[in-house]
Simulated assay, not measured.
Amino acid sequence: MIVTLTANPALDRTITLLAPLRPGEVQAASSVREDAGGKGVNVARAIAAAGQQALAVLPLAEHDPYAVPLRAAGVDARCVPVHGAVRANLTIADPAGETTKLNLSGSPMTDQDARALVAAVVDACAGARWLVLAGSLPPGAADDFYVRVVDAVRAAYGGSAPRVAVDTSGPALRAVIDAGLADLVKPNDEELAELVGTALPEPEGETSDEAAHAAADAAVLAVARELVPVRARAALVTLGSRGALLVTADGAWAARAPRIRLASTVGAGDSSLAGYLLAESAGADEPLRLRTAIRYGAAAAALPGTQPPAPHDLPADDLVVHRLA
Rank of each mutant, 00 (worst) to 15 (best):
P171A: 15
A232I: 03
V118E: 12
T110M: 10
V166C: 01
R242T: 01
T168Q: 02
E226A: 07
G240I: 06
V147A: 08
L117W: 09
L245E: 03
G205P: 11
G159M: 08
D209R: 04
S160V: 12
A218T: 12
R115K: 14
V220E: 00
A199D: 15
A211D: 15
V153L: 05
A142H: 13
V220Q: 03
E204I: 10
R154N: 11
G159S: 13
T198Y: 00
R225E: 05
V150N: 09
A218I: 04
T110F: 08
I177A: 10
Y146V: 10
L236R: 02
A216F: 05
V132M: 02
A182S: 05
V147D: 13
V149S: 11
R154K: 07
A172L: 09
A119V: 09
G127E: 12
A142P: 13
A216S: 13
S208M: 11
A224T: 03
P229K: 01
A152W: 06
E206Q: 07
E206L: 12
R231D: 04
M109A: 15
A214H: 13
A193L: 00
E204N: 08
P138I: 08
S105W: 03
P171I: 09
A152Y: 05
L245S: 12
L181S: 06
V121A: 07
V153W: 04
L192P: 06
V176G: 05
L181W: 01
G170Y: 04
A193K: 00
R231P: 01
V223C: 09
G180I: 02
L181Q: 11
A119F: 08
T207K: 12
P171D: 11
L131R: 08
V166Y: 03
A134T: 04
D144N: 14
A215E: 15
Q112I: 11
V118W: 02
V185D: 09
D217C: 10
V223N: 00
V132K: 06
Y146C: 08
G205V: 09
L137Q: 09
A152N: 03
G158D: 07
A216N: 10
D151I: 07
A212K: 00
G159V: 10
D143K: 13
A216K: 02
A155E: 15
W130Y: 09
V220L: 11
P138C: 12
L192G: 04
S208W: 13
I177N: 01
E191F: 01
G180E: 01
G170I: 06
N188M: 01
H213L: 15
A211S: 14
R163C: 03
A126Q: 14
L104V: 06
A152P: 06
G158E: 04
S136G: 08
D183V: 01
G159C: 00
F145R: 11
G197N: 01
V132Y: 07
G135I: 07
A193H: 00
D151Q: 15
R231Y: 02
L227A: 00
R154W: 14
L236V: 03
V166I: 11
A215G: 11
S160K: 07
A219L: 01
A235T: 05
L131I: 08
V132H: 10
G127I: 05
L173V: 03
A114K: 12
P201C: 05
V228P: 00
L221D: 03
A119Y: 07
D183M: 02
D144T: 06
